[in-house]
Structure formats: C-alpha cells, structure tokens
Simulated scan of single mutants.
Amino acid sequence: MADAPSASAPQVWGVAALLLAIGDALAARFGAVAVAGELSGFSRAPSGHCYFTLKDADGDAATLRCAMFRRAAALLDFVPRDGQRVTLRGRLAVYEPRGELQLVVESMRPAGEGTLYEQFLRLKARLEAEGLFDASRKRALPRFPRAVGVVTSLAAAALHDVLSALARRAPHVRVVVYPAPVQGPDAPPALAAAIATAARRAEVDTLIVCRGGGSLEDLWAFNDERVVRAIAASPIPVVCGVGHETDVTLADFAADLRAPTPTAAAELAAPSQRQALEQLDALALRLHRPLRRTLDAHAQRLDQRALQLARPSALLAAHRQRQ
C-alpha cells in the first residue's frame, strides 16, 4: 500500500484554483476601496467597457490595471483623458487569464489634473503667449509637391502607413525619411534635430511629422518645447499627424496643418495623382470646345472664299454684262 501523504507537505494548487483563492482573499480583506491617481492609456472598447492604468499621483513607479464595465462607464458625467487625476471606487480582483491584479471600477470622479497634463497646459499657455500658435503664422501647403519629407521612427507603423498612402496616391512624389525616435527621453532632441536637418538640406517641399497612437506618456515627446519650437521655426511647411483623432499635442498647434492620423497627414501633403489627371482632362476639354468652334467658323469662311476663286469665268461674265 502506498504511503500516506505527509501532513506537513504543502497543498498543491491548480493555477485557476490558486488565482480564485487569491481573488477571494482580496475581496474579503479589502472589500470596496477608493484610490486616487492619474489616468494612463485610457481606452473605450466597442462593447462600452473601459480599460486603463492608474498611475501613482506622487510620481512613484507604481501602477494599477483597471477595468470599468459598460454599466459603470455609462454613468460617467465627464470624458476621461490621459494625465487626468481621478478618484476611483471599486473592488480588487485577479484577472485570471493573465494572473494580473486589477481594480474593477464602479465609479470615477475627477480629482484635479495630473502632473503631465498640468505641464501641458502651462507650456501651451506660455508658447501661445509668444505667438507660436497664431493663425497668421500658418502657411498653405504646396499644392503639387515634388518631394515630401517624413520625420518619424524607422520602426514605427506610422512610417509604413505614410509610405503606403503616398505610393497609392502620388507615386510620382519623391519621399525622404529623416529618422528619429518618437518615444523616450532621447526622442525630443532627435526629433528637433531631424526637423532642422530637413530645413538645412532643403530637398523637400512639405514635411510630415508623425507617429502612431499611445498614452499621454507615449506621445509626450511631441509636447516637448524643443520639438514645438523646431516645428514653428521650420522654413518648410509642416503637417503634424500624431496619434489618433482624439490625441492633441503641442506639436499640432505649432504645425501649419494638423492631421488626425499619419495616413491623413500623407493624404493632405500630396494630392491624388488620379484626381489631378482627371482635372487636367476636364480643363483640356473646356479649352478644346471653344477652340474647335473658332476653327470651324474660320474653315467655313475659307470655304466661301475658295468657292468664289474656283469660278473666275462667272466673275468675268458678270463684268461683261455691266459694261
């Protein structure tokens, strides 16, 4: 007969059973909790559920994953945005598929603006007072550029989107890429340097500054004063396509034109070759019709003169009759 298991041996849990037990222990220990912090990476799924990260408001590296289901999200009376400071009420739970601690949020209310958003507003106000965002500074983009520059990361999906859009719409337009990281501490000086390089080389007619979407922290390089001033100082008209349609950066305000996405920036920077050719065909037709009418009228008059010259005997007979 097999030996009986030792009484001192630890209990062997299944993964799902252990996570369930941890979740039950959290619920029993903490119950409903309230926690304050800054929103980061806020997104609303098509289902209506909201997912985001709550960062520590004092600048510590601590973060907490949060889920706010549709029923609770429908009760929100404001639009949450990254960097905003909020107070959440909910219950701690374990998301079993990933074994992650998360807060299931039952309510959310604003609790003042977060540190990053406060920096954004202060810098925006100062640069706006200097006139960097004035409408009078905005320049029209060249209607038919020969070359378009792109400032972004070589590894960014935004670069692929821009190149695909330009190849589809305007394959005749030359594209020059000025690579620079678009995220992290090295991004602001690199982006400013890339914009300055494009200005110094003067080989493109329009400059696109772009990257894909992300949280407020991900896009923060485009709120850096060095990047904003580089865009404002660029002698080349700049189209800024950073993030998604709802993302707004200070680079957008400094650019000559803001695009909601990188793809839209490419579409604004270069007109469609097909549409341009159709317009040329229509203009050619408008010029051809009056020219044809004029030529036809002259041809009729020439025919009349030719008929008169073709019968000189009739002219002589008429002359004799008058004598």
Rank of each mutant, 00 (worst) to 15 (best):
G214V: 05
D281H: 11
P181Q: 04
T87P: 03
A36P: 02
L287T: 04
A16L: 10
L159Y: 00
S272C: 12
A28M: 04
T53S: 15
R137N: 06
W220V: 03
A25H: 05
E128R: 08
E96Q: 13
L121G: 02
F42M: 10
P5R: 12
Q11A: 13
A194D: 03
A158F: 06
E217M: 11
T206A: 13
V148S: 11
V104G: 05
D296Y: 03
S6T: 12
P97I: 15
R146I: 03
D296P: 04
V104A: 04
L127P: 09
E130I: 14
D252P: 03
H319W: 09
V204Y: 04
H288M: 08
R211K: 12
K55P: 13
S6P: 00
Q321A: 15
F78P: 02
G114T: 06
L268K: 00
L166A: 05
R70A: 15
V150G: 08
R169D: 10
D3K: 12
A167Q: 04
P189V: 01
A21Q: 05
R109D: 01
G59C: 01
R98E: 12
A129M: 02
T87M: 08
L116W: 06
L191V: 01
L277I: 10
A221R: 10
A192F: 13
D24W: 07
G243D: 02
N223M: 08
S6Y: 14
E245T: 07
K138S: 05
S136N: 09
L216N: 12
A194L: 03
P312R: 12
V104T: 07
C66K: 02
E245R: 10
D218P: 07
K138W: 06
L159T: 02
L283R: 15
L277A: 13
E217N: 03
I22E: 08
D247Q: 07
A297K: 05
V227Y: 01
A254S: 00
R143W: 05
L18A: 13
S107W: 12
L103N: 14
A265Y: 01
G212W: 00
S47A: 14
G131W: 09
L166R: 00
G112K: 09
R146A: 12
L277Q: 10
L316V: 11
L19K: 10
P235T: 09
G14R: 02
L191A: 04
L166K: 06
R201Q: 07
R301E: 12
V94T: 02
V105M: 01
P97A: 13
V104W: 03
L19A: 13
R70L: 05
V242F: 09
Q275S: 09
A310R: 15
Q102Y: 02
R174G: 11
A7V: 14
L307S: 12
V79S: 15
R146F: 07
S215E: 07
L92E: 14
H244W: 00
R89D: 04
R89T: 15
A32C: 11
R301Q: 14
W220F: 12
V227R: 00
V182G: 09
A198W: 01
D218E: 11
E245D: 09
E96I: 15
A32Q: 02
G184V: 03
L163C: 15
R289K: 09
Q119E: 11
D56W: 08
